[in-house]
Computed example of a mutant assay.
Amino acid sequence: MIKTETGWPALPAAPDAGLLLLRLAGAFLLLYVHGVPKLLHYGSELHHIEDPLHLGAGITLSLAIFAEVLCPLLVAAGVYTRLACLPILFLLLVSMVFVHPDWSIADGQFGWLLMTIFASVAVAGPGRYRLGSLPRRGA
């Protein structure tokens, strides 16, 4: 058994478990707070969504739903994880820089924390606990 500097046994899967927790927590928070409400209330969201890139409300809302619903599901599953983080990071960056430039760090802490989570996952990758890496029966 390998022991760490603290004397506790080393957990070889700890980084992978940490990445799984990071992926699931970030995806859940983004979906629950932003994605699902936009999807369920598409009509009302269409009337008050900010359009900082001047693409039109419909396109902007569709892209936001893509980044806040489909991409977090891919990240949670560990499928195309790094690629799926890019639209999320772009959306969060546009939101923080162009839509809410007047927010202090304290006001925008949720957005900055989500950016930190998804940037970390984009850099580290999904880890080994992901769909497609599960052992198959009989193999």
Score class of each variant (00 low, 15 high):
residue 2 I to E: 07
residue 3 K to T: 12
residue 3 K to D: 04
residue 4 T to I: 01
residue 5 E to H: 08
residue 5 E to K: 14
residue 6 T to H: 06
residue 6 T to R: 09
residue 6 T to P: 00
residue 7 G to H: 04
residue 8 W to S: 09
residue 8 W to R: 13
residue 9 P to M: 02
residue 10 A to T: 11
residue 11 L to N: 13
residue 12 P to G: 06
residue 13 A to Y: 11
residue 16 D to M: 00
residue 17 A to W: 14
residue 17 A to N: 05
residue 21 L to K: 06
residue 25 A to S: 15
residue 26 G to K: 08
residue 26 G to E: 08
residue 26 G to T: 10
residue 26 G to V: 09
residue 26 G to A: 10
residue 29 L to C: 12
residue 30 L to H: 05
residue 30 L to V: 14
residue 31 L to E: 09
residue 32 Y to W: 15
residue 32 Y to R: 14
residue 32 Y to N: 14
residue 32 Y to I: 01
residue 33 V to T: 13
residue 35 G to I: 06
residue 35 G to K: 03
residue 35 G to Y: 03
residue 37 P to L: 06
residue 38 K to I: 11
residue 38 K to P: 12
residue 40 L to H: 01
residue 40 L to R: 10
residue 41 H to S: 12
residue 43 G to P: 01
residue 43 G to T: 10
residue 43 G to I: 00
residue 44 S to R: 13
residue 45 E to Y: 10
residue 45 E to H: 12
residue 46 L to K: 00
residue 47 H to D: 14
residue 47 H to E: 15
residue 48 H to E: 00
residue 48 H to L: 00
residue 49 I to G: 11
residue 49 I to L: 14
residue 50 E to P: 03
residue 50 E to C: 04
residue 51 D to H: 02
residue 52 P to W: 08
residue 52 P to T: 07
residue 53 L to Q: 13
residue 54 H to M: 12
residue 54 H to Q: 15
residue 58 G to Q: 04
residue 58 G to Y: 00
residue 58 G to N: 02
residue 60 T to L: 05
residue 60 T to N: 06
residue 62 S to R: 10
residue 65 I to L: 12
residue 65 I to W: 08
residue 68 E to Y: 00
residue 69 V to W: 13
residue 71 C to A: 13
residue 71 C to E: 01
residue 73 L to D: 01
residue 73 L to P: 01
residue 73 L to Q: 01
residue 74 L to Y: 09
residue 75 V to F: 03
residue 77 A to R: 06
residue 77 A to F: 07
residue 78 G to P: 01
residue 79 V to R: 11
residue 79 V to D: 00
residue 80 Y to H: 15
residue 81 T to K: 05
residue 82 R to F: 03
residue 82 R to N: 03
residue 84 A to E: 04
residue 85 C to Q: 08
residue 85 C to I: 09
residue 85 C to F: 11
residue 85 C to D: 07
residue 86 L to Y: 10
residue 86 L to R: 06
residue 88 I to S: 04
residue 91 L to M: 07
residue 93 L to Y: 15
residue 93 L to T: 15
residue 96 M to A: 11
residue 99 V to M: 13
residue 100 H to T: 14
residue 101 P to E: 02
residue 101 P to H: 02
residue 102 D to A: 13
residue 103 W to L: 11
residue 104 S to R: 05
residue 105 I to S: 07
residue 106 A to L: 13
residue 109 Q to I: 15
residue 110 F to R: 10
residue 111 G to R: 05
residue 111 G to L: 08
residue 111 G to H: 11
residue 112 W to Y: 12
residue 112 W to E: 04
residue 114 L to P: 09
residue 115 M to D: 06
residue 116 T to D: 05
residue 117 I to A: 08
residue 117 I to G: 00
residue 118 F to L: 13
residue 119 A to K: 02
residue 119 A to H: 03
residue 121 V to G: 06
residue 121 V to N: 08
residue 121 V to E: 09
residue 122 A to N: 04
residue 123 V to P: 03
residue 123 V to T: 13
residue 125 G to E: 13
residue 126 P to L: 14
residue 127 G to M: 10
residue 130 R to A: 15
residue 130 R to G: 06
residue 131 L to R: 11
residue 131 L to E: 05
residue 131 L to V: 15
residue 132 G to P: 03
residue 135 P to T: 02
residue 138 G to E: 08
residue 139 A to I: 02
residue 139 A to T: 07
